[in-house]
Design a protein around this nucleic acid. Structure first.
Length: 291
DNA sequence: AAACCCAGCAACCGCGGCTGC
DNA sequence: TGCAGCCGCGGTTGCTGGGTT
């Protein structure tokens, strides 16, 4: 038994897209839209491609206003902050970075940003490599332009849910660390926050309890950039939780390190570390009951 | 000049969730 | 209530090009 394939794999082309295919797909979508059905789209557009492949190509490359190229420092900050707050939720991050795709962010994180933060660099492995010099400028503690000690990333939530840990159960209820609760402003009922509750506003309709957890950048402002002054999380019911949290570069590093070298039991160590350092009030953070 | 190494990135794959029947 | 189809997400793979030996 298995899932039925989404397309006839024998008859679909795989691999890199040709300019002709790109043109066909782009013109078709611009003319007719996706019609809400990616599966039938390639056939209608005259493409021998899987619908998923078309969707990916459109979303990651052909769609208008896609931004390619270097990430700015501001974007770095946003990504780091969000990673510390919500883990590897690339699509949410993408919704916070106009013009960037989840794939882009994911690749950027995996190939560059993570290494910057951890200080794992080609330089260390291969001293002759010069390219590293470049990369290291942004985040190296020795970088004079950045004021290493004071470098910090604003984190906008007290809910910490690193999802991209090596040993992560998909069943949140079995992993105490992955679910914490926040006191609702309007009542004494606790509001469970699990991964399904965090979303961009675009996706908010998917959730029923807490519709969405949204960053507030302070009134209709450009999505880019998490403001240090405005560290709020909005709950769907209009509840605002002010966190006042700000994680240092070191703490984000710690998170990365603990994620990459420890098993999931150790995630609590990071949390404990934050609590111990007064970054997170214990009283505001309650473990969800184990199920 | 050739071989090798490695980083970057596009694309694929499988799974979970949602929706309609 | 169960099933099938589809969408979207995140992890992984594999190709490519640039740098190094």
């Amino acid at each position: 038994m298995g899932r039925t394939p989404c397309c006839d794999k024998a008859n679909v082309k795989k691999g890199p897209w040709s300019p002709e295919e790109d043109t066909k797909l782009k013109e078709f979508i611009e003319k007719y839209g996706t019609g809400g059905n990616w599966i039938s789209l390639p056939h209608k557009a005259g493409l021998r491609r899987c619908g998923k492949s078309c969707r990916l190509r459109w979303l990651n490359y052909l769609r208008p206003n896609i931004k390619h190229g270097e990430f700015s420092e501001e974007e770095d900050r946003v990504i780091c902050s969000l990673f510390a707050a919500i883990g590897s939720r690339w699509s949410i991050m993408a919704s916070r970075l106009p013009g960037r795709t989840d794939n882009d962010i994911k690749n950027y994180w995996n190939t560059k940003l993570k290494k910057k933060l951890l200080g794992i660099t080609p330089f260390q492995r291969k001293p002759h490599r010069q390219s590293y010099h470049h990369q290291n400028q942004h985040f190296s503690p020795s970088s004079s332009s950045q004021g290493a000690g004071s470098e910090s990333f604003p984190i906008t939530s007290q809910v910490i849910m690193p999802r991209s840990t090596p040993v992560i159960s998909s069943d949140l209820f079995r992993v105490p660390y992955h679910q914490y609760q926040m006191k609702s402003c309007s009542s004494m009922n606790t509001v469970s926050i699990d991964q399904s509750c965090i979303s961009s506003e675009e996706n908010c309709t998917r959730f029923s309890n807490i519709k969405y957890l949204n960053y507030d950048y302070g009134g209709g402002e450009e999505q880019m950039g998490i403001q240090k002054e405005s560290k709020l999380f909005l709950l769907g019911g209009g509840c605002q939780v002010e966190t006042g949290l700000e994680y240092s570069l070191e703490e984000i590093k710690q998170l990365l390190i603990s994620n990459s070298v420890c098993n999931n039991n150790d995630h609590n160590l990071y949390l404990d570390h934050l609590i111990a350092n007064g970054k997170m009030e214990n009283s505001k953070l309650q473990h969800a009951p184990d199920f």
